[in-house]
Write a protein that binds this DNA or RNA. Structure first.
Lengths: 258, 258
DNA sequence: GCAAAAGTGTTGGCGGTACACCCATGT
DNA sequence: ACATGGGTGTACCGCCAACACTTTTGC
């Protein structure tokens, strides 16, 4: 198939285009049905999933590489993408014992194929917060499937990718405390209760409705719209949108949020 | 000289021992005379200073590499060493314009010498807090001098090392807010005013003496010793030492410090 | 009218900041 | 005695958490 040709080219000549031993892994978080989901790819021939990742081109910024991966896997760009940690253990590739066999990708006729992609990799971790509905997951050439997984119910993951996800979640929760979150996770217009659900999901704990509203409004990054949303047999909540100027300012300067 | 032989070996065969395109840079901070100092090396033949750094061995953890660099440059080990960011801009090597000429190290008879060390590097930044007095700076093979510099009065730095230092300081100040600092920066026994000076130096702002003491003691990581320190014509302050068990616990769990 | 959810206001406690007083020490 | 810095206590203020009441909407 065409894919196999691409893979062969990547394996044999990839080291000319990309920096060896360096990879970028993206923890792409989407929010849907009051769940935080993470985008994962299923590898060919192995019952194992992995974070969308990629390599850094010889003359490409690492940040750019991360954006490129995000774009290639989700079709969205210009997103909040945050580097959070670099994973440099030489054994990280063997961390999940049951998966210490490398995928068929690295074998040929049962024999292991030595190539640059089977070597040790130091991986730079990024996380992104994306609007679930705007994303159409696309598997890469090495994968047969790409889909969302509830972060509380993950499948078997390759290498140390479970640890990378844990780290990313920790970083996101930390961010929540000091910077606004939601611009890229919610639709253009949303209600305060919806925003609160998002916060509760990320923090995985309940928040007080009244205190949340007070606090959130006092930050001055929201604009109340003249419209309301109809939500069935209940009072209609106001719709809000982010004041993007102030939102980005708060992103830069930070604040305190309990 | 002997040094030149080592360098030649490094340039010609280093890529066999080390992962190419990857380096580790350490922002080693020492505290002395109410100043925060950073350890810098002066390069051979160029009026330019750089952070102590090194490469990652083919089968070495990145963390281990950072510890090794720290050990080789300062003679101290088992230190609090914290990864804080990875710098991956392909142009970082040219960032300081006046220094865009590479050191003589990469030239031979006026002609540029092409080798793995002159290529692009992605650098993983670590910071360490060390006790000034315990450190005997040792230049590496590429440097002629190694010494402390006041962070407010730095010399011309190579590449993007000024930016790396800024990032590190930011990370240290952030750490100060959530984790204890001082165990590796102060002698075994110290007074509360001394600890306060340290905090003021890192944050570069004055703190209220009484509030500082209340807050610090309430954290429960200090043990008041029966002795006092004689400081001339003034009341003798108590000596304290860190309760290492609780200190490390606070390191892990964190707290809030305004 | 009833149930469920949204909008708004009040209170109390904790922690942080600001500030005042007394104590110890060497000259 | 006096100057200088250290130890301790108090008052105020703001923020956050806990909590109650009213309003809206569809059935």
């Amino acid at each position: 198939m065409k894919d196999n040709k691409v893979i062969h080219e990547l394996i044999t000549n990839g080291h000319l285009k990309y920096i060896p031993h360096i990879s970028v892994d993206c923890v792409i978080l989407g929010y849907h049905a009051n769940q935080l989901n993470v985008l994962l790819n299923k590898w060919k021939d192995v019952e194992v999933w992995s974070l969308p990742g990629g390599y850094v081109e010889r003359n490409e910024s690492v940040d750019t590489a991360a954006h490129r991966v995000l774009w290639e896997r989700t079709g969205v760009d210009k997103l909040f993408l945050q580097q959070f940690y670099t994973f440099g253990d030489p054994d990280r590739i063997n961390m999940n014992r049951r998966l210490n066999r490398l995928p068929v990708l690295f074998q040929e006729g049962g024999k292991e194929l030595h190539n640059w992609m089977a070597e040790r990799f130091i991986s730079i971790g990024y996380y992104a917060l994306v609007e679930y509905s705007k994303v159409s997951p696309r598997p890469d050439h090495l994968s047969v499937e790409s889909r969302w997984w509830d972060i509380h119910d993950l499948p078997a993951l390759i290498f140390d990718h479970d640890r990378i996800i844990s780290h990313a979640l920790h970083a996101v929760r930390l961010q929540l405390k000091y910077q606004p979150v939601g611009l890229s996770l919610l639709p253009e217009k949303f209600t305060l209760p919806e925003l609160q659900k998002l916060y509760e999901t990320i923090l995985s704990r309940k928040l007080d409705r009244r205190n949340f509203q007070k606090k959130m409004l006092s930050l001055g990054i929201l604009r109340r719209l003249p419209e309301r949303k109809t939500i069935g047999p209940h009072r209609s909540p106001f719709l809000y949108s982010f004041d993007k100027r102030k939102y980005n300012q708060a992103l830069k300067e930070g604040y305190g949020f309990a």
